[in-house]
Amino acid sequence: MVKILAKELKGTGITANCVAPGPIATDMFLDGKTEEMVKKVIDECPHGRLGQTEDVAPVVGFLATDASEWVNGQVIRVNGGYV
C-alpha cells in the first residue's frame, strides 16, 4: 500500500513510508498477555528484550526530516531483529 501511495504522490515532494515496529513494551502490547507469553516473545528476540518507544521514535523522527527525502515507498522494520 505504501508503494502505491508513494507513486500517487509523485511530483509533490511528499514521501510515503511505513514504520513496522516489533514487540514494544506498551500497554497495548502487554494487555491480555501472561508473563509466560511475554517471556516467550523476549526469548525469540535477538536483543533479548522488548522494544521501547525510545527505540522507534528516532526512526520516525528521521522520516519526518528532509534528510530522508530519498527514502520513499519503504516499510522500515524497527524490531531488534525479531523474526
Results as ranks from 00 to 15, higher is better:
residue 17 N to Y: 12
residue 70 W to I: 07
residue 27 D to R: 11
residue 31 D to S: 00
residue 37 M to C: 01
residue 27 D to Q: 12
residue 66 D to T: 08
residue 34 T to G: 00
residue 80 G to P: 09
residue 21 P to G: 04
residue 72 N to D: 15
residue 8 E to D: 15
residue 75 V to W: 14
residue 17 N to E: 06
residue 9 L to T: 14
residue 33 K to Y: 00
residue 48 G to N: 08
residue 28 M to K: 08
residue 70 W to M: 11
residue 71 V to P: 02
residue 37 M to P: 00
residue 73 G to K: 12
residue 61 G to E: 08
residue 25 A to Q: 12
residue 82 Y to N: 03
residue 75 V to Y: 12
residue 17 N to R: 08
residue 16 A to F: 11
residue 9 L to S: 03
residue 24 I to P: 05
residue 21 P to D: 09
residue 76 I to G: 06
residue 51 G to A: 03
residue 60 V to Y: 01
residue 71 V to H: 07
residue 32 G to F: 00
residue 35 E to L: 06
residue 70 W to R: 09
residue 37 M to D: 13
residue 66 D to M: 00
residue 11 G to P: 05
residue 17 N to C: 12
residue 57 A to Y: 03
residue 51 G to V: 14
residue 36 E to Y: 02
residue 7 K to Y: 01
residue 72 N to Q: 13
residue 75 V to C: 15
residue 73 G to H: 13
residue 57 A to F: 09
residue 67 A to Q: 07
residue 18 C to L: 14
residue 48 G to Q: 11
residue 22 G to I: 11
residue 18 C to T: 15
residue 57 A to R: 06
residue 72 N to K: 10
residue 33 K to M: 00
residue 18 C to R: 11
residue 71 V to D: 08
residue 48 G to W: 13
residue 41 V to G: 04
residue 46 P to E: 10
residue 38 V to I: 15
residue 29 F to E: 07
residue 67 A to R: 09
residue 59 V to Q: 04
residue 13 G to I: 12
residue 59 V to I: 15
residue 25 A to R: 11
residue 73 G to Q: 13
residue 44 E to Q: 15
residue 45 C to K: 10
residue 65 T to E: 08
residue 26 T to R: 04
residue 43 D to M: 13
residue 52 Q to S: 13
residue 19 V to E: 03
residue 7 K to V: 09
residue 23 P to Y: 12
residue 23 P to S: 11
residue 5 L to E: 07
residue 30 L to E: 03
residue 72 N to S: 14
residue 57 A to D: 02
residue 54 E to N: 10
residue 5 L to Q: 05
residue 79 N to E: 11
residue 6 A to Q: 02
residue 11 G to E: 04
residue 68 S to E: 04
residue 20 A to I: 14
residue 75 V to A: 12
residue 70 W to H: 09
residue 5 L to H: 02
residue 67 A to M: 10
residue 36 E to C: 01
residue 35 E to G: 05
residue 81 G to H: 01
residue 49 R to L: 08
residue 43 D to H: 12
residue 82 Y to A: 01
residue 80 G to E: 10
residue 17 N to D: 07
residue 79 N to A: 06
residue 18 C to G: 10
residue 7 K to S: 08
residue 16 A to C: 15
residue 49 R to Q: 10
residue 39 K to C: 01
residue 62 F to W: 10
residue 21 P to S: 04
residue 15 T to S: 14
residue 70 W to E: 03
residue 34 T to K: 00
residue 64 A to L: 15
residue 48 G to H: 11
residue 3 K to V: 13
residue 8 E to L: 12
residue 68 S to C: 07
residue 26 T to K: 07
residue 46 P to I: 14
residue 76 I to C: 04
residue 16 A to H: 11
residue 73 G to N: 14
residue 72 N to I: 13
residue 26 T to H: 06
residue 82 Y to L: 03
residue 6 A to D: 01
residue 41 V to R: 03
residue 26 T to F: 02
residue 36 E to S: 11
residue 77 R to M: 05
residue 73 G to P: 11
residue 23 P to I: 04
residue 55 D to V: 14
residue 6 A to G: 01
residue 63 L to Q: 05
residue 80 G to F: 04
residue 75 V to G: 07
residue 82 Y to R: 03
residue 11 G to R: 09
residue 19 V to C: 04
residue 71 V to Y: 08
residue 73 G to A: 12
residue 29 F to A: 05
residue 57 A to S: 13
